[in-house]
Design a binder for these strands. Structure first.
Length: 729
DNA sequence: CGTGGGCGGATTTTT
DNA sequence: TCCGCCCACG
């Protein structure tokens, strides 16, 4: 590949970044500005023009998906073989290091990785083991504490309690947790990074080896790095390797899980002669959408500063819809999608974005009723399913007998007479002697009844047999044999028709996954590689669905994606921005960035919706429109439903310009069965004392009717129709 | 040992 | 409202 074909498809800013001199580089890449392209072309530039060996390049991402895309694009677009490059997630690469240097890291060779669920179970057992009250020491919060410390690079010994008894107890639990991990030969996600950072720091000569190898370190989504990830990268780069990092401070939406936007600025201070490039030309959205996004994000303080622009057209105005409630909102969105499809659009080009998962429900109901196929992102992933985790637990025990989490999971699955009593004896012994459950079985034999001891012995022999019988088999046969011989398949076969059958299918799918599994790192035993793969890459949320579907997801999961038509829903103060973030300025600014992310997902059509009334957790809420709406210049917005329809029922009101409002019969009944001339839901009314408001519901008939009105200033009130003297506005 | 009803909790997510 | 977890019962 010659230089021109490498640089030609790029704009000026991109080109400068790609062809930048070999020095530390920071690329501030706005949404839709071609960030991945810059990253992949930079790799090509290093190899083709600077004659860097691919062997000396390390590219780090956050998700497996991003890593896979980068690899694919390097191969497909640039025609480079990507195998010699190290491309992976922070965790994947840290894992690889620990597998290579398990001795230096003080880990057993067959260490296993704990996923979040395993971790929480373990923490829970530790809390119980310490005799603490689980309602006071909530496993979720203790786990959170431990992970937060690790993400900051802190071990228990670094922590001071400052006389705070709560904190002191947390630190003790953290210590106990570490001890349990050591005993079990397991590491959690955060540990992968922390431990690999520590061996680089502490083992003489080790980091120098990697610095010598990787002259170039590229990092994607740099604004999402946490303390330990940053320290890790900095440690690797040292003063000899050249970092090339790409990020966008305006798209930092993971502060709540430890990400530090400040790392972008820190990077400029920590490295010498950092060159900064800004990518501001956007290739995704219309001018109006970008203007709105720019206007919103300007309200944040401490930005590095960036303004997206496009050479394309302004496009349509952003449409704002004020719904009466969440059902009306859903109806509006579904109608909008049907309209889009009726005009020849694809469903897969439409996305419904929301702040929290609970919001998807109503949309699902309405889409279902309208027979519009959809796909909800998020949810259980393949390797997180119960039956899959059961099978993996057997395999993990084969690979690492001391893995208590796996032991607990399958010791009595299917039932083999090892009950709570037996387990209590085992746990007590294991705790008292700082050994694993597996190691406790033999010494406990005397303490247990003959039945329990025999059952345990049988289990131990089963695992031994599964190991011996399968050690020479190819991976997929090994997995298959374990599923059958462990009794797991039989157990699920007995299960009630539908569920059990689906589980068996999933277990078969696991065998297929094993058959198709190709380890990236050939040095590892295949089973170990497969088990790590299962934890580190837990698979798709849903099987690949090739049907043309509406896309539904949270704003967080939408980051990095784009859609011609976007419905950004639930724009109410308290929901978005979320109640729990409103009080704190950092929290609010992160919500605003989330709004910016959502807005910039839209290519051509952006709809914003909010509901005046929303039922949440079984109670009605009346939220004000999100403050973010007011941050958009009014001339970019067009209200889909005009504010007032004088003395006309709101639902029948003229709204000829509304993009989507097909046949009335598709609406829920409740809105259409009011007698003509009566107050309509959603109608704007005026009260002498309370001022203007919106009718939320009506009970009864005529002057005896009671009407619920949400007043702009006074909140909601129930009024008697006969006395209220309401005036339509 | 497996299930059903009562209880509490209910942003956001990847590895 | 609704989901997941825990304990009590069959």
């Amino acid at each position: 590949m010659d230089v021109s074909s490498l640089l030609d498809p790029l704009n000026d800013a991109q080109r400068q970044a790609v062809a930048a001199p070999l020095a530390p580089t920071l690329v501030l890449a706005g949404a839709g500005s071609g960030k991945t392209r810059v990253l992949t072309h930079r790799v090509a530039w290093l190899v083709e023009v600077e004659n860097v060996s691919p062997h000396g390049i390390l590219a780090v991402t956050f998700t497996n998906k991003a890593a896979g895309e980068m690899r694919a694009r390097i191969e497909a677009q640039l025609g480079l073989p990507s195998a010699p490059l190290w491309i992976g997630t922070f965790h994947g690469i840290a894992h690889r290091l620990l597998r290579t240097h398990w001795r230096e890291a003080g880990l057993p060779q067959g260490f296993s990785i704990l996923d979040s669920e395993d971790q929480q179970r373990l923490v829970k057992r530790i809390i119980r083991g310490a005799g603490l009250d689980e309602t006071r020491w909530i496993p979720r919060e203790v786990t959170w504490f431990i992970n937060a410390q690790k993400d900051e690079g802190l071990r228990p010994k670094h922590l001071k309690d400052d006389g705070d008894p709560t904190r002191r107890q947390m630190i003790r639990l953290y210590e106990a947790y570490e001890e349990a991990c050591r005993r079990n030969g397991v590491v959690d996600f955060a540990e992968l990074l922390l431990r690999s950072h520590e061996i680089w720091r502490d083992v003489p000569g080790l980091v120098e080896h990697y610095r010598a190898r990787f002259g170039h370190v590229l990092v994607d989504e740099f604004q999402d790095t946490n303390t330990i990830q940053y320290a890790w990268m900095r440690m690797l780069a040292g003063s000899t390797s050249i970092p090339f990092v790409v990020g966008d401070d305006d798209q930092s939406i993971y502060r709540w899980r430890g990400a530090r936007v400040e790392n972008l600025q820190q990077f400029r201070r920590d490295f010498h002669g950092v060159q900064v490039f800004k990518l501001e030309q956007n290739y995704r959205s219309t001018g109006n959408i970008l203007a709105a996004a720019n206007a919103i994000i300007t309200n944040n303080s401490g930005r590095i500063g960036k303004k997206l622009w496009t050479s394309g057209e302004r496009g349509e105005p952003i449409r704002l819809y004020r719904a009466y409630n969440e059902r009306d909102e859903a109806e509006f969105v579904v109608n909008g999608i049907r309209d889009w499809v009726a005009r020849g659009g694809n469903r897969r080009d439409t996305a419904i974005l929301y702040r929290s998962n609970a919001q998807s429900r109503v949309f699902e109901e309405y889409l279902l009723a309208a027979r519009v196929p959809y796909r909800v992102y998020g949810g259980l992933r393949f390797f997180e399913r119960q039956e899959i985790k059961d099978a993996l637990a057997y395999l993990r025990l084969i690979s690492n007998r001391d893995d208590d989490a796996s032991f607990e999971r399958v010791v009595n699955l299917p039932t083999r007479g090892i009950g709570a009593r037996t387990m209590e004896v085992l746990r007590a012994h294991a705790r008292a002697n700082s050994i694993s459950l597996w190691q406790s079985c033999a010494p406990c034999a005397g303490e247990l009844g003959a039945r329990g001891a025999a059952a345990l012995q049988a289990f131990i022999e089963l695992i031994g047999r599964l190991d011996a019988d399968t050690s020479d088999l190819p991976l997929h046969e090994q997995v298959d044999h374990v599923i059958q011989a462990s009794g797991l398949a039989g157990h699920y076969k007995k299960d009630k028709a539908d569920k059990g059958e689906a589980r068996l299918e999933n277990l078969e799918e696991l065998v297929s996954a094993a058959r198709g599994f190709e380890p990236e790192d050939g040095d590892m035993p295949p089973l170990m590689a497969f088990l790590s793969h299962a934890v580190l890459e837990s698979g798709e949320g849903q099987a690949e669905e090739w049907e043309d579907c509406v896309q539904m997801m949270t704003l967080h999961s939408a980051k990095g994606l784009e859609f011609p038509v976007v419905f950004l829903c639930g724009l109410e103060d308290g929901l978005f921005p979320h109640q729990r973030s409103i009080a704190d300025v950092h929290g609010l600014e992160e919500e605003r960035r989330l709004c910016y992310v959502g807005t910039t997902r839209a290519m051509r059509h952006l709809y914003l919706t909010y509901a005046e009334q929303r039922r949440m957790h079984g109670v009605d809420n009346y939220g004000a429109p999100s403050r973010f709406i007011a941050e958009i210049p009014p001339d970019l917005l067009e209200e889909v439903r005009p504010k007032v329809q004088v003395s006309r029922p709101a639902y029948g009101a003229a709204r000829g310009h509304a993009p989507a409002r097909p046949a009335q019969s598709t609406r829920p009944q409740r809105y259409t069965d009011d007698a003509p001339g009566s107050l309509k839901l959603g109608q704007r009314v005026r009260h002498q004392k309370f001022g203007d408001g919106v009718v939320l519901s009506v009970e009864g008939q005529g002057s005896n009717a009671r009407v619920q009105v949400n007043f702009e200033r006074q909140g909601t009130k129930w009024l008697m129709m006969g006395y209220a003297n309401l005036e339509a506005v």
